[in-house]
């Protein structure tokens, strides 16, 4: 086992779109399984430092439209902060609707067999997600 990764659990323990938060030397990190693989983000909203992975599952938002039209978008890829409801893409870390330049800090997730690990030293520019390895 590498020194730069922390075990986040086994695949079956992950409820789809629900974060599990693990403590790492880089801070608490939320790891989540989606229909296209695992993602991990620092459990810290860039706005006020709220625990951004706690309180809601990955969710869906709306995008630009004519006034009074609501077009759903980013289905089950939105991290919504439990405080001020700032929204970010879980895979890119970018804000929904470009409301802020601030991003969530992302980490790679490694799945080895049934085990899920987060690479806590590989934040920022690193690939945000790793596909589940075939069993």
């Amino acid at each position: 086992m590498d020194n730069d990764r922390v075990r986040a659990g086994v695949v079956d323990e992950f409820v789809l779109n629900r974060f599990r938060v693990v403590d790492t030397p880089a801070g608490a990190i939320g790891v989540v399984r989606t229909t296209d693989g695992f993602y991990a983000v620092l459990n810290r909203c860039p706005h006020m430092g709220a625990p951004v992975c706690v309180g809601t599952d990955l969710t869906t938002s709306t995008v630009a439209s004519r006034p009074f039209e609501y077009r759903l978008a980013h289905e089950d890829r939105v991290v919504r902060c439990p405080w001020h409801r700032w929204e970010f893409r879980v895979d890119t870390g970018e804000s929904i609707g470009n409301t802020t330049k601030a991003r969530l800090l992302r980490f790679p997730v490694i799945v080895e067999g049934a085990e899920v690990f987060v690479q806590y030293r590989a934040a920022r520019g690193a690939a945000a997600r790793v596909k589940e390895t075939p069993q």
């Binding site: 706005h47 938002s61 709306t62 995008v63 630009a64 439209s65 004519r66 006034p67 009074f68 039209e69 609501y70 077009r71 001020h84 409801r85 700032w86 929204e87 929904i96 609707g97 470009n98 409301t99 802020t100």
Partner: peptide, 15 residues
């Protein structure tokens, strides 16, 4: 408020 509540007024695409 827009940064927080944009989901309800998504046509407001700029600050």
């Amino acid at each position: 408020e827009w940064r927080s509540l944009r989901i309800d007024i998504p046509w407001v695409t700029d600050p």
